[in-house]
């Protein structure tokens, strides 16, 4: 399927990674700490050249890279954008990342890119459409993708199934893997009145190829109920760390990303979040019987 030799770094280790930010380039080179791999947003590296691509070419020689798309609009009603898919293919061809992931969401409508991860009703019709799109992505890219569970702020009256049944159905039909964002689980569970631990316990963890952890903001809805907003702009909160530890104990270690995209802190702050993920992974390994 792929016209090149397998890359020796082509798996993500079951260890911490961070979302790469250009301002951390020198610090990562000097001391990556517990960070063993990096994630990049695909769309930021679709320019023709310049510093972003030069930096990424250096980084890919040193770290396994996870490529995270934010613009495919896999949940969109319209067909996938073939030009964008071709751009993605060109990027993955030279980058040879260890993983490629995208979101269970839509972001483009009527030719306009809305730059947000918009929600979907969980119906059989939506499932069929998303599965078709995931199939097309995997066929075009010649590789398996991971599909990420969303942060959601509202529900659709027309939904017919749970989010987990929806994601599991897509994975089963398409053979895709799943990216489990534990902060998104906590955010959505709070906003939707679910039990986050029960969500993890029902999730097909054997399908999970990568975990995300990030920060969120807290607001309230019109009735005073807590409304959490996925922000990627703050430290991971303690209840999310606890939910992550539960996930690892239950499903085993996984490559774990610290996502911090807005109000990005200095490297030591991000490195300390990665170190905390490393401790959770180590503690879970130490607890294992035998």
């Amino acid at each position: 399927m792929l016209d090149r030799a397998p890359d020796p770094t082509a798996t993500l280790p079951d260890a911490p990674g961070v979302g790469y930010k250009a301002q951390h380039y020198a610090a990562i080179g000097a001391d990556p700490g517990a960070v063993r791999w990096l994630e990049i947003h695909a769309e930021n590296y679709m320019g023709d050249g310049g510093r972003p691509i030069a930096q990424l070419r250096h980084l890919r020689d040193r770290f396994p890279i996870s490529c995270h798309g934010v613009g495919l609009s896999i949940g969109g009603e319209a067909p996938l954008d073939r030009d964008h898919l071709a751009r993605l293919r060109r990027l993955l061809d030279w980058l040879a990342p260890a993983a490629f992931s995208e979101h269970l969401a839509w972001s483009t409508h009527d030719g306009h890119f809305l730059n947000d991860l918009l929600p979907l009703p969980y119906t059989a019709a939506t499932l069929a459409r998303v599965a078709e799109h995931v199939d097309e992505v995997q066929q075009t890219l010649g590789r398996q993708m991971l599909l990420e569970n969303p942060s959601t702020y509202l529900a659709f009256a027309e939904s017919e199934m749970s989010e987990i049944d929806f994601l599991a159905g897509i994975a089963q039909r398409t053979g895709c893997g799943l990216l489990l964002d534990v902060n998104n689980v906590f955010v959505s569970a709070t906003n939707q009145g679910w039990d986050p631990v029960a969500y993890i316990d029902a999730f097909p963890l054997d399908r999970v190829g990568e975990i995300h952890l990030g920060g969120h903001d807290a607001q309230a809805d019109d009735h005073g109920a807590p409304l959490l907003i996925d922000s990627h702009g703050a430290p991971v909160v303690d209840p999310v760390w606890a939910l992550y530890a539960h996930t690892i104990r239950r499903g085993g270690p996984r490559p774990t990303l610290i996502e911090w995209d807005t109000d990005v802190p200095d490297w030591p702050v991000l490195a300390s979040e990665a170190a905390r993920a490393a401790r959770v992974l180590a503690d879970a390994a130490a607890e294992k019987p035998g």
Binding site: A155, D222, A225, L227
Partner: peptide, 18 residues
């Protein structure tokens, strides 16, 4: 229409997040 909070009430401020 058809967007709600967990209790089935209109989404209101929840839509404003998007």
């Amino acid at each position: 229409a058809g967007l709600t909070d967990p209790a089935g009430r209109p989404a209101g401020a929840r839509f404003d997040v998007y």
